[in-house]
């Protein structure tokens, strides 16, 4: 027996829900970095898999939009593929893996290496929106601290890092002050990506489904990563280039090759990696020199192992 196909409203959510989310988004854009509560709905995926991001995307995506979904920087992981398919089906959205072509980019961990442009919207899936949560468990108290701009506590976290490791060891969810006012958690993006937020021409929207909060960084907003005078913010750096495409100054993933400690470091942004690798002449030749003979197979293997790291990250934030 075949059941009739269910017809969903455009972009899955009903129109009223999308309106409430859009209202929350407008408020969030009006007060950069402020966490706006919203009535988070059920979407057909478990909480913790990006329900906040999916709801924000559903509220902003229109007929003319092209959607890109990345997870750990990769377009081809389970979650990225299924969210992309979901919006193809329920919103009839055009999808792409090309950062330059996308108008809406939903992401979990990364900001693409390709510089963002005006008119693009980044949508982040946020697990824990409150940057003070692990220092101050009371929500009433953290809200008060935001209201009074009482942010001494976040420096305690940085102090503890330096006391223990000799440097600020926080490498993801690195706290920032937005527009000189609100303390914000840029979600679990690596601190490597923090500088990309500062005066970015794109609109950045953050949705936390489980915690029912939305916040935003409008285009061209100051985003300052915190630090001490004698221990300023240092984004992560990588000493070697990507083993596949030879790019330098990009965020790299470690890919374990065997059980004897062998590993290779490749771009976390698959779109950037593919295009750089495909680019003719100099770049490709340089890459071939660095990653001899194994290149073709290594690429496949490198990018198919990402699904495991996704689960590990998820566990770390649960």
């Amino acid at each position: 027996m075949t059941l009739p196909r269910i017809e969903y409203n455009h972009a899955y959510l009903d129109e009223q829900t999308k309106r409430t989310i859009r209202r929350a988004l407008l408020k969030a854009v009006a007060i950069p970095g402020f966490q706006v509560p919203f009535a988070s709905r059920e979407v057909p995926m478990p909480r913790g898999w990006g329900t906040g991001g999916v709801q924000v995307t559903a509220a902003v995506i229109g007929a003319g939009d092209t959607l890109k979904v990345i997870d750990q920087g990769a377009d081809d992981t389970t979650n990225a593929v299924s969210i992309r398919r979901f919006f193809e089906r329920v919103a009839g959205a055009a999808t792409t893996t090309d950062t330059g072509e996308a108008t809406v980019i939903q992401t979990r961990h990364r900001i693409p290496e390709t510089p963002l442009a005006e008119g693009q919207i980044m949508v982040y899936q946020v697990p824990i929106p409150e940057p003070l949560r692990f220092l101050e468990p009371r929500e009433t108290e953290t809200r008060r601290m935001h209201a009074l701009q009482d942010y001494g506590l976040i420096y305690v976290k940085l102090y503890e890092d330096i006391a223990r490791f000799g440097r600020i060891a926080t490498t993801y969810a690195y706290p920032v002050i937005v527009n000189g006012r609100y303390l914000m958690d840029p979600s679990p993006t690596p601190s490597f990506d923090n500088p990309k937020l500062h005066r970015s021409p794109a609109l950045h929207l953050y949705g936390a489904g489980r915690e029912k909060r939305i916040y935003a960084v409008p285009p061209y907003t100051d985003v300052e990563s915190l630090g001490f005078e004698d221990h300023p913010f240092e984004p992560q750096r990588f000493s070697q280039p990507c083993a596949i495409c030879g790019s330098t100054g990009v965020y790299l993933d470690e890919v374990v090759l065997d059980d004897r400690g062998g590993a290779m470091y490749v771009c976390s942004d698959t779109d950037h990696c593919e295009r750089t690798a495909a680019a003719p002449a100099a770049a490709a030749a340089a890459a071939a020199e660095r990653a001899p003979s194994r290149r073709a197979g290594a690429y496949e293997r490198a990018h198919s192992t990402r699904m495991h790291t996704f689960d590990e990250q998820e566990g770390a934030h649960a």
Binding site: L135, D150, L153, V156, Y159, R164, F228, E229, H231
Partner: peptide, 27 residues
């Protein structure tokens, strides 16, 4: 006290709350 923050962090917190931003001096 913040029981899971080091003694130095506990003493430093009020300083950081009043605008101290130099790790060496706080310590």
């Amino acid at each position: 006290l913040r029981m899971h923050v080091s003694a130095g962090g506990n003493i430093g917190e009020p300083l950081m709350a009043t605008g101290w931003r130099h790790y060496g001096r706080i310590r």
